[in-house]
Amino acid sequence: MFSKEEHSRLRAEFWTQFGQLMKPFKSEEGKRINWTNYKTGVKNVFFKMNADKKKCGIGIYLTHKDPEIQQLIFEQFEEMKTYLHSILEEEWEWELHTKNDLRQTISKIYIEKEGLNMFKLDDQADIYSFLKPRILKLDEFWRDTKEVFVDLTT
């Protein structure tokens, strides 16, 4: 069992190492990018990666406070579902109006891999190899579709 400080340090080291692994990769637009804190450029639309002692995952998170607007954005993603899955080369989970850890209503499109522990050195390479291709493919999808969401949310 780790102390709170040790837990925070190990988590920071994990994501710093992932950032270093991703440093050579540029966005689909040819720009340098902070992959661990991906900026979509669209308010209330986030690409997030997570890892803990039980699993890792990556997803698109919609956090608009108005549930109707959040649903509208989600429905726009649904219209692009076939295209998204063709780029990802797999199907992800789709959840409209679920609750996050803070009990806020969000919607998410995500995939998780169970049985991996970010605090075990033996699992870290597997987590990185799970997250890396998926964030790169999300970037490819976003290059082609971002403007639709910019227009939708402005």
Rank of each mutant, 00 (worst) to 15 (best):
L131N: 02
A12T: 14
I33T: 14
F141H: 04
D101N: 13
E140F: 10
K132T: 15
D151Y: 10
K54G: 08
E13L: 14
P24C: 09
R134F: 03
I58V: 10
M49D: 04
E78N: 14
Y110N: 07
D139Y: 08
I58H: 00
F119R: 04
S107W: 02
E95Y: 05
N100Q: 07
F149Q: 03
F46Q: 13
N44Q: 08
E68H: 11
K23W: 11
G59W: 00
K4F: 12
S129G: 04
L116C: 01
N117W: 05
M49W: 00
L131Q: 05
T16P: 05
D144Y: 15
I69Q: 12
I111R: 03
F14W: 07
I135K: 01
H64T: 08
R134A: 03
A12D: 14
G41C: 06
L10W: 09
K113N: 04
T145F: 04
T145M: 05
Q76C: 08
M22P: 06
A125V: 10
K120M: 13
Y83S: 12
N100H: 01
I73Y: 04
T145W: 01
W92S: 06
K137M: 02
L152W: 01
I87E: 01
H85R: 08
G30W: 13
T82H: 11
F77L: 01
N100R: 06
D126K: 14
D101H: 14
T98F: 06
R11V: 03
V150C: 04
E68P: 05
E78Y: 07
I109G: 00
M118V: 08
L96I: 10
E78L: 13
L10F: 10
G59T: 08
L21D: 09
T82D: 13
N100A: 06
D123G: 02
Y83L: 09
S3R: 10
E93N: 15
Y128I: 07
F77V: 07
Y61G: 06
I109S: 01
L84G: 04
Q76E: 15
E112T: 14
N37D: 13
E29M: 12
Y83I: 10
K120S: 12
R143Y: 15
A125R: 14
D101C: 03
D151L: 12
L138R: 00
E91K: 14
W142Q: 04
I73Q: 03
Q76R: 14
L96K: 09
F119H: 07
H64I: 08
Q104S: 10
Q20G: 10
I135M: 03
L116T: 05
V150P: 00
E79K: 15
Q20L: 13
K43E: 12
K113L: 11
F47Q: 09
K65F: 14
I111E: 06
W94Q: 01
R134P: 07
K31D: 13
L138K: 00
G19R: 13
I87K: 08
D144Q: 15
G115W: 06
E95A: 00
Q70S: 11
F119Q: 05
T153F: 04
L121G: 07
L121A: 11
E28V: 12
I135G: 02
L121P: 03
K39Q: 15
Q71S: 12
Y110A: 01
H7T: 09
